[in-house]
Design a protein around this nucleic acid. Sequence first.
DNA 1: ACCGAGTGAGAATGGTCATTCTCACGACAG
DNA 2: CTGTCGTGAGAATGACCATTCTCACTCGGT
Lengths: 196, 196
Amino acid sequence: MPTAISTEESMRDQLLDAVEQVFYARGIQAANMSELRDAAGLPLRRIYQLFPSKDELIVAFLRRRHDRLMAMLEAQVAAADSPEDRVLALFAHLDAWFREPSFRGCPWTNAYCELGPTNPAVAAEVDHHELEHRALVTRVVLDAGYSPEIADVIYLLIAGAVTTAGVQHSLDAAEQARHGVRILLASSRAEVAMAT
Amino acid sequence: MPTAISTEESMRDQLLDAVEQVFYARGIQAANMSELRDAAGLPLRRIYQLFPSKDELIVAFLRRRHDRLMAMLEAQVAAADSPEDRVLALFAHLDAWFREPSFRGCPWTNAYCELGPTNPAVAAEVDHHELEHRALVTRVVLDAGYSPEIADVIYLLIAGAVTTAGVQHSLDAAEQARHGVRILLASSRAEVAMAT
DNA sequence: ACCGAGTGAGAATGGTCATTCTCACGACAG
DNA sequence: CTGTCGTGAGAATGACCATTCTCACTCGGT
């Protein structure tokens, strides 16, 4: 048996922590393997032992981040008191995210813009994220009693806020989107009230 | 005097046409100078004579596309009959754009994701575009009598629709955004009516 | 103490790419 | 007609980078 199978998991985590930070901060293509090595404090040999290529690292980076985001969203949504608040919780999450100093836009959009046209594995991973994320948003909105059309609009507001915050460094984007959502929800309630 | 100063302008156009097509379709980093040479039908030497580096080509590409987009938007907005229709014209434009087979997302967002963190000239050009575009949207919405807050929300819907259409290839994005806008505008009118 | 497998550090490899250079050629001026 | 200058086509250059390889070393088992 090779030594220390017990630390393989920890090296993997150490590596992926560094990879996440470097890929996100500097861009995937701009980050080279030496940078990852320095940030992770692991020899290149070990990195290639854990992931056979940079491409696999990219996919692992996207998937890990996706899993973390989904878990966090589910938790924040679950913590909200009313179905209405669950919708708004999505935007509270955005607001906090945008204010992190390290915020640099949506990792999946970034990856897709950088590599989508030339890297099918990355494109698939981004697709997967978008589908699951959109499904979560839609579920939360539908569970609050609103229409699928409203869910679509809310999804666009989220996407727009993330892009705008990323490119324009506008910290207000989440609040602006939330304002839009309040109008949409109120208007939708008024409609239902009128119909009954 | 060197020969044929009369065709320098036409070579520039020929080059930038090809550059636009290749950069947009394949991604800026993925497109190399040989591809541009082949697409433009000009020798490398000539390309470097017209633009001293790939970076300058990138900036020229973004600026040319920006100028064209702004002119087109101004024209379509001007062609609309009512202030209300001018707002909706922005979304009709989006819808047509998304349906072009060559549509591959927002060129400026794409460029920013690819190069923003490492290329200040590109970042500045993208900034310039976003500012002017946002100013146009805001002006159209304000001219129609709506509040700046509504303008912000509408801008986010546009940004969200473009990103979503680009990454998810969803042709409905423009229609979904337009639906949201109709609700926003109607709700805003109702509010004003109630106040009076 | 000895062997061998696995290690870290960093050098070598092979490929890609932006940018520059070479060279033979055609057009124009004198 | 001849020398010169700008040209097109593509080869050379120099950097960079993902990936692999070298080598001296360490450590667990005997």
